[in-house]
Each structure stands twice: as structure tokens, then as C-alpha cells.
């Protein structure tokens, strides 16, 4: 009952506890290499690798590299799923949502970072709908027809971001040596706005190897509608 009473507070407390835990488990294993970089190995509390987590290095100095051209990414809709399910884009960049299915989709977002919705559209009108994401943040996109379709667009401040692979490993290289804030985001990361941060110092010519254990919230997703598995509606 105690846990229930503090049901709403507990997520905050858990998050705080978690930040502490992460800082403890932060093992700075640096090694010398030709160029400096960061390798982060992510695992959950069960020791399983955490995939599709985004790592972003936020430069503490104001002068970050902004010379890159506006980024354009593509989020395909195939077999009533968004592919990929997690995409990164630098602020100012844009994303298009081609429709590879033979039925119509209706993409929308109510995320504060970018609210939009497209009309219903099919495959003949591909890449006609392109949305520009100016504000850094996470945009959750869904399809109004297919409730289970869900994808995340992580709008970062710079290009210093990457997505963890099947082994839960995410790495970045080529950044200027210095002090950074390392931000880890995951859709189920049990923290406010699903991210947490840690200061990290990048030394020249060395690759910082980090390991991090994060706690994932319950993966409550909408199941695919049964009809989607039936031939007659395809």
C-alpha cells in the first residue's frame, strides 16, 4: 500500500536513484587510439543489451560544429510499421515518410517538439510529406489508422549522436577533445522525458569506453490489430 500511496511520486524517486546508480556504475575505461572517441555499452537491469538507445554528446562550449548541411532522413512505412523505429536528425533537418504499403497511412505527432499530421496518403505520393524539425527533442509519431505503428525521431543539437546496435553498443568518433555532457535517451528509459545525462571528458587520441546499466520501464505497446495478420485485408 505504501508503494501505491506514493505511486505518482515513485517514478521521480526512482529516476533520481537511477541517476545515482548510473554515476556509480560509470566506468571510465579510456584507451589510446589514432583518434579520440566514445564507446558506450548499454545494458538493462537484467544484463540484456539495450538496443535503439540514442547517445548524444552535448558540447559544453558554445562553439559547436554547425557547419553541416541540413539533414534529410527518411522513415519508411512498410508492412504497417515505421522503419526504422528510432531515427536521429539534427535540429533544422527534415524527415519524409514514404509509404511502401499498398494501403493509406495517416502520420501524426502530438509531441510538443513538433506537432503535425499528414492527410491519408498512399505510395504514389511518396516523399511529398516532409516535416522539418527545428527544435531539439523527441517526436513520437503514429499512424491514425494503425494504432500500433510507433516511431521516434530524436532531434539532436549536433551530429554527435548515434543509436545503439544489437549488442547495445553505441560509439562516436571525431569530436573535438573536451568536456561534454553525455545524454542517453531510450523510449522506455525510466526517467523524466526518458533521458539521463552524465559529464564526460574526451581526451585527444583516446577512446573513452563506458558501460552503463539503465532501468527500462514496462514496454506497454499497442498490439497489432488481428486483421493485420489476415490476408483478406492486405
Amino acid at each position: 500500500m505504501k508503494a501505491i500511496d506514493n505511486f505518482f511520486q515513485c517514478s521521480l524517486q526512482k529516476a533520481a536513484g537511477f541517476v545515482f546508480a548510473v554515476s556509480v556504475s560509470f566506468a571510465l575505461l579510456t584507451s589510446f587510439a589514432s583518434a579520440q572517441g566514445v564507446v558506450l555499452r548499454l545494458q538493462d537491469s537484467d544484463g540484456e543489451p539495450v538496443v535503439e538507445a540514442v547517445m548524444e554528446l552535448l558540447s559544453d562550449s558554445a562553439s559547436s560544429s554547425t557547419s553541416t548541411a541540413l539533414q534529410e532522413v527518411e522513415i519508411d512505412q512498410r508492412d504497417k510499421e515505421f522503419i526504422p523505429s528510432v531515427t536521429t536528425v539534427v535540429a533544422g533537418g527534415s524527415a519524409s515518410f514514404p509509404n511502401s504499403d499498398d494501403i493509406l497511412h495517416h502520420v501524426y505527432s502530438f509531441s510538443p517538439a513538433k506537432t503535425f499530421d499528414t492527410p491519408l496518403y498512399g505510395s504514389d505520393l511518396d516523399s511529398q510529406y516532409r516535416e522539418v524539425f527545428d527544435v531539439p527533442g523527441v517526436i513520437e509519431i503514429g499512424c491514425n489508422i494503425h494504432d500500433w505503428m510507433l516511431a521516434y525521431i530524436y532531434v539532436g543539437q549536433s551530429e554527435l549522436m548515434a543509436i545503439s546496435d544489437e549488442q547495445g553498443v553505441v560509439s562516436l568518433t571525431g569530436m573535438a577533445p573536451g568536456s561534454y555532457t553525455l545524454r542517453v535517451w531510450h523510449s522506455r528509459l525510466d526517467a523524466p522525458q526518458n533521458y539521463m545525462e552524465q559529464e564526460v571528458i574526451i581526451e585527444a587520441g583516446r577512446t573513452a569506453e563506458l558501460e552503463m546499466t539503465i532501468e527500462l520501464a514496462r514496454d506497454r505497446r499497442v498490439r497489432r490489430a488481428p486483421s493485420a495478420n489476415r490476408k483478406r485485408y492486405r
Binding site: E140, G142, D147, R220
Partner: peptide, 9 residues
Amino acid sequence: LPLYLPRQV
């Protein structure tokens, strides 16, 4: 019931 938007909000 949860209200999804498209995640639960």
C-alpha cells in the same frame, strides 16, 4: 484504460 498519443499520455 491508457490514452495513447501514440504513446500513453
